[in-house]
């Protein structure tokens, strides 16, 4: 899923300063699963904003709404009747949400309520970890199912580097050295020999480096 973090409340309050009617808009996709942008979080953020406004003696018009997905025009369309009645919309979806919203409703300022952080998964309740960098050319099967592009700080393909110590990365004792884990895993599977291959340079065209990406599926297009 796409994982995000709530923006600091102070930052959000500053964004909507002077805006009378505000809508907090959630998304039932990834951000609901990672507890940062679902119906529950919409309620929490909107309540916080209402408290702030009451405290400042302002009209506390902060409405709440959560749609199925903010990355799909058909759900964005559901707001057609109401969107432009707001002075500000805070989208607490991933970075796609505020963009799809402001593309569809150009008259309303749309603000991001969360910072989109990475593509990852939940290790346990309340803990998420990065797993994918969307390089566009998946190679994990060569590395024991562990991605060195997303999980090595240097994205090294022929690791581990000289900074690996006690299974940890040189940047922090909180970061695993994924290459240490790759070596262990491949050894456990009896496939260590495969890692002796000198990996040639990667083609980064499929990654963000090749420019913004777009996918067209002719078989699905209407």
């Amino acid at each position: 899923m796409i994982v995000g973090d709530s923006k600091p409340l102070e930052e959000i309050l500053e964004m909507i300063q002077g805006k009378e009617k505000v809508l907090v808009l959630g998304c039932r996709g990834c951000v609901t699963v990672c507890n940062v942008g679902g119906e529950k979080e919409v309620g929490i953020l909107a309540t916080m904003l209402r408290i702030a406004r009451k405290k400042a003696g302002l009209a506390p018009t902060v409405d709440e709404r959560t749609i199925e997905r903010q990355c799909d025009p058909e759900y964005i369309e559901e707001l057609a009747e109401v969107a432009e009645g707001y002075d500000a919309i805070i989208s607490i979806a991933c970075g796609v949400g505020p963009q799809f919203m402001s593309e569809r409703y150009p008259k309303v300022p749309v603000y991001p309520g969360i910072n989109t952080t990475f593509i990852g998964g939940a290790l346990e309740h309340g803990v998420w970890s990065e797993r994918c960098q969307s390089c566009g050319n998946c190679l994990v099967h060569n590395f024991g199912g562990l991605c060195p592009i997303a999980r090595c700080s240097k994205s090294i393909m022929n690791g581990p580097c000289g900074g690996s110590a006690n299974k940890k990365c040189e940047i922090s004792p909180d970061v695993d050295c994924i290459w240490h884990l790759i070596v262990e895993k491949m050894a456990g599977m009896g496939r260590l020999k495969e890692l002796e291959r000198v990996w040639p340079v990667k083609n980064w065209i499929t990654s963000r480096d090749g420019g913004p990406r777009k996918r067209v599926r002719e078989d699905l297009k209407q």
């Binding site: 529950k40 309620g43 929490i44 309540t47 916080m48 209402r50 408290i51 009451k54």
Partner: peptide
């Protein structure tokens, strides 16, 4: 829940 407590303040 956070919301219970927040609502009380609201």
């Amino acid at each position: 829940d956070i919301l219970h407590m927040l609502k009380s303040f609201e």
